[in-house]
Nucleic acid binder design. Sequence first.
DNA 1: ACAAAAGTGTTCGATATACACCCATGT
DNA 2: ACATGGGTGTATATCGAACACTTTTGT
Lengths: 222, 222
Amino acid sequence: MTEQEFLKQYHREDYDRPSVTVDLALFTIQDEKLKVLMIHRKEHPFQGKLSLVGTFVGMQESLDESAVRALNQKTGLHDIYFEQLYTWGNLDRDPRMRVISVSYYALVPSESIQLPEGDAQFYSADEIANSDEIAFDHSQIVRYGIERIRNKVNYTDIAFSLVPEEFTLPQLQKVYEILLGQKLYKANFRKKIADKIQPTNKMTSGEAHRPSHIYRKKESIC
Amino acid sequence: MTEQEFLKQYHREDYDRPSVTVDLALFTIQDEKLKVLMIHRKEHPFQGKLSLVGTFVGMQESLDESAVRALNQKTGLHDIYFEQLYTWGNLDRDPRMRVISVSYYALVPSESIQLPEGDAQFYSADEIANSDEIAFDHSQIVRYGIERIRNKVNYTDIAFSLVPEEFTLPQLQKVYEILLGQKLYKANFRKKIADKIQPTNKMTSGEAHRPSHIYRKKESIC
DNA sequence: ACAAAAGTGTTCGATATACACCCATGT
DNA sequence: ACATGGGTGTATATCGAACACTTTTGT
């Protein structure tokens, strides 16, 4: 039998299948806290509870495309940092039926987000992570996302994704401190990131203290 | 509408769904090389090509359980280290139909594996990773697995999973060297892992040089 | 005796930690 | 003038890289 012949006689309907969704944890920093976007569910199951942004995976889109679509529908955002987290497949995670969820997380500076009026809102990530009132296993997903971010801060540049294109060093340091959960030494922090930033010739003004320089992320040399 | 009523009128057949598989890359060390278990496919698609161990996810098993089952069927192994890697969902990764693959990797000491006669065999992981003759996107999965292992060697204890329960330090060092792809200094290596190991009172013998002490992994204190 | 590999102590340099101090702005 | 936070130099501790040397077996 040739491969062509084989494909012709293969009926995919013969196999029972679980459903597949993508769930996305959009993180940002507001009020000096890590926040995550959650939706008040208006429908069953878990009506009235908070859940992540999510969608069923369409038959004509990749997983990444599903994630982008779900994010764009709820926030209008595009071109932001996002990454796959983990895939959850417990039998009882959705009371309707067998649903496997591919989870993602995304990072966005709060300055560049303007939520359309609706049911999506930012909540303290730590509170969501520790609540037992969250729909599905989404509390666990947020926990997992926070953990991943904490780990990656130290050996990647993800912190820059939580800050506008132009930023000051105290601003960037604050992001690191919030993610790591501890105060950092100014001088040491600056040495550590010195080779990742590019000065502009702008400065802040209007505050009752010394102005700070404004930087951009240095493009990696290719 | 109550949640119960809602669930009753919900027909999951209304939604078209992709298939879900689990694919597993079983790594071990043989002949001073990192190897991965591959199967010669006897059926379409990709008949005659090498593929990872895999299976469709059953409706009554979690993803982890599917991975364990697939592994056990092909090797008879159980209770070994394994971890989810990444989930692949490109539209064209399987010519039959839309298939989403949750990939795993597993580690086993070659001493504890005895392949049943059959089509499963170990191949050089690097060669699989660089071949363009591998079924599906399994070459990419192996690449991804190697990368993950490389990263985790330095901040976890996964290297111990590639060595028998009782081992010598030169043996363990070799594993680190193979995974990292570079020679290490004996003295420095020993200082680094000193607090992770437990001496037994056994020693090797029979070789034309000084015998080495035999150790076990120290149980983390709980 | 010698080859071969196991095992150990010590130096050197890089990096992270900690602290002390100076600077520029608005009120 | 001074409070506030931005910005920088220097000393100390910690960790890893590198090397030199000793030890124990089989032949």
